[in-house]
Nucleic acid binder design. Structure first.
Lengths: 135, 135
DNA sequence: ATACACCCTCCAGTCACTGGAGGATCAGGA
DNA sequence: TCCTGATCCTCCAGTGACTGGAGGGTGTAT
């Protein structure tokens, strides 16, 4: 199977080169094999792992959560309750974030619409934020 | 009108004492007046400003955005188009985040439900994240 | 007089990167 | 063979938005 250089891995996964090296530093990615001249090489398995990480990050998992999730997959006989617990904990946080963001969207829509061509003195954006519902 | 100490301001706004001092450092809050012994004092205007900042942060505005918004309010004859532009730019970002989070919620729900008492080998969480739609 | 809450400054640490300096290596063409 | 340009390496400093703690001063109630 073809070995990839770090730049190609970056292109395939959408994760920047520096970030891939950072993930290796914090052991979120394993230590990459090297060529004789010291360049990192990667396999298809690394593409998968990094894609998993990238999606997980995008979806709001912390690197530590991702590490535990990945560690769990390396013990396939364990009960997956632990993974489910991580997911459920995360689900609650996600739901909270969604409802806050939806409140916010409503405020922003209401306010951005009424503010064309007016003067700052009458601007409703400031007032709307000042009175935004705080949780 | 009664002067507040920093701790009282913190209590009234839900912003931590250290964070209030940090906001002064980055000039998001003005330099506070001091007592003879050097303690910061605050007025009701500061409560309002900090509440505005707190809500704005909660709603996802950066401290720089908040600074520009506040600066705008100090020129009440200006057109408020600039404020509207900040709000609209922010609205787009909020909408993008909402749709990503809703995708994520669906995945987490689907997966947390099917993962009770099984073994890691059959756990769907990992697979679901690995294939999560990226953007 | 003492206890204790509160205030001060300064500084280091957190998280998840991002960017750049300075230098080595590699592949392709003239 | 030399050169160019892309890519790689390590190391380090910076970002944003805080957070927490050390070490010490102040204010007030008992």
């Amino acid at each position: 199977m073809a070995m990839l250089m770090i730049g190609e891995l970056a292109r395939r996964t959408g994760v920047k080169v520096n970030t891939i090296r950072f993930y290796e530093d914090i052991a979120l990615m394993p230590k990459a094999a090297r060529t004789d001249s010291g360049r990192r090489t990667y396999s298809e398995a690394d593409v998968k792992r990094l894609t998993f990480i990238r999606n997980g990050r995008d979806l709001g998992f912390s690197t530590e959560e991702l590490k535990s999730l990945i560690a769990l997959t390396e013990h396939p006989d364990l009960d997956c309750g632990a993974a489910a617990a991580i997911a459920r904990r995360h689900l609650l946080a996600v739901e909270a974030r969604i409802s806050r963001l939806m409140l916010m969207r409503r405020e922003l829509e209401r306010v951005a619409a009424n503010c064309e061509g007016g003067r700052m003195a009458d601007c409703q954006i400031i007032g709307a934020i000042a009175q935004a519902p705080s949780h």
